[in-house]
């Protein structure tokens, strides 16, 4: 798409977004698309798990608190299944214990809502690099 960030990320990576809040999910999607990424959005962990090409995604932006299975449990499940997809957690109110647990499990970043666009983009970029 010829945008500046894309020069940093040399490939067309697809970012998955899992958040139950419609407005947040759509807003993040637009933000990432404005930075030149492909975006797949999911309302819940379950919807995400039904998605066929998990490993085709470059990274995941996951809300921690969701009805049903929450973000941390999803991460644990993915790790257990051998998926190595990098995860960026976003949360309305995070605590240290939660962040530590997420990072130990291999999370790329732990962002507290609301967050600046650059913080997210940096985290995504870092995640995509890590996968590489």
């Amino acid at each position: 798409m010829g945008q500046r960030e894309i020069s940093v990320n040399e490939r067309d990576a697809t970012v998955g977004i899992i958040d139950d809040d419609d407005s947040v999910r759509r807003g993040l999607g637009r933000l990432l698309r404005s930075a030149g990424y492909q975006v797949e959005t999911f309302v819940s962990a379950r919807e995400f798990l039904e998605y066929g090409d998990i490993d085709g995604l470059g990274c995941l932006v996951v809300d921690v608190r969701m009805p049903g299975e929450n973000g941390l449990d999803l991460q644990q499940g993915l790790v257990a299944q051998g998926h190595t997809i990098p995860i960026i957690f976003i949360t309305g109110h995070g605590d240290i214990a939660m962040a530590v647990r997420a990072m130990k499990m291999g999370a790329v970043d732990f962002l507290t809502k609301p967050f600046d666009d650059q913080a997210l983009l940096d985290a995504v970029q870092q995640a995509l690099k890590r996968e590489r």
């Binding site: 637009r30 600046d116 666009d117």
Partner: peptide, 9 residues
């Protein structure tokens, strides 16, 4: 969060 994300987008 939604407002911020949308506005920045």
């Amino acid at each position: 969060t939604g407002i911020l994300a949308n506005a920045q987008a």
